[in-house]
């Protein structure tokens, strides 16, 4: 039940885009068409679902204070948490590469639709952000997995909704200075208000 609650929380209430502004760059850049937004969203869910538990393992068994005690009592005092940023980003970059190669080998059609987005994802702040939140909040492995998938799904929903709105928006008469980024900011703000209504829901 706790896990379900956390899942709902990370999808709707603490949505990556609307409450933490993570992944805004690709959120704005790749939301012009629903089909491409769908591809990127799917890739984000995929990569987040893998990297957050991976980084959890790394954090638990290598980086945290005393995490190396499984190597022997000499290592029990070591605190490597200052290496967190470098290790997390390295794992993310490596996992993205691995996922890309695996998909290319086993499902060329999926690779065709996801392929170009995967390299982009390595520098998407939603991915690194989720891992850092996971480390900060001391999740368990189960929670970390649910949190990863949940935040990915939240991003997926947000980017598809925005892309659908922007497709319709093409036929509207927007003031010159607001075209593109300006109006998109307002729309995102309004969507954020809608997502605020989920606040306080718990199961």
């Amino acid at each position: 039940m706790d896990l379900l609650n956390l899942g709902i929380k990370s999808i709707f209430i603490e949505n990556m885009v609307f409450s933490y502004f993570l992944g805004m760059c690709s959120f704005l850049a790749v939301s012009k068409k629903v089909s491409t937004a769908f591809g990127l969203g799917l890739a984000v869910v995929f990569v987040l679902g893998i990297t957050v538990p991976m980084n959890w393992l790394l954090n638990e068994y290598v980086l945290n204070e005393g995490a190396l005690s499984w190597l022997g009592s000499n290592f029990a005092e070591i605190d490597l948490s200052f290496l967190r940023f470098i290790m997390f980003i390295a794992i993310i970059a490596a996992m993205v590469q691995l996922v890309e190669m695996t998909i290319e080998k086993f499902s060329p059609s999926l690779y065709g639709s996801l392929g170009i987005f995967l390299p982009l994802i390595a520098v998407n702040c939603a991915i690194l952000g989720s891992s850092l939140f996971m480390a900060q909040r001391d999740y368990t492995i189960g929670e970390a997995t649910v949190f990863g998938f949940g935040s990915g799904t939240g991003f997926f929903l947000a980017i598809i909704a925005l892309a659908a709105i922007r497709e319709k928006l093409r036929y509207s008469n927007v003031p010159d200075g607001l075209k593109g980024l300006g109006i998109t900011m307002f729309i995102t703000g309004l969507m954020g208000i809608a997502f605020m209504s989920f606040m306080g829901i718990s199961i």
């Binding site: 003031p175 010159d176 200075g177 607001l178 075209k179 900011m185 703000g189 954020g192």
Partner: peptide, 26 residues
């Protein structure tokens, strides 16, 4: 203070700046 405010304020700043510089996105 909520995230929504940030989007709207930045939207207005972009609008004012682009009205001044005359930059139009297509």
């Amino acid at each position: 203070v909520s995230p929504v405010g940030a989007f709207i304020v930045l939207g207005f700043i972009i609008w004012v700046q682009r009205a001044k510089t005359g930059y139009v996105e297509h």
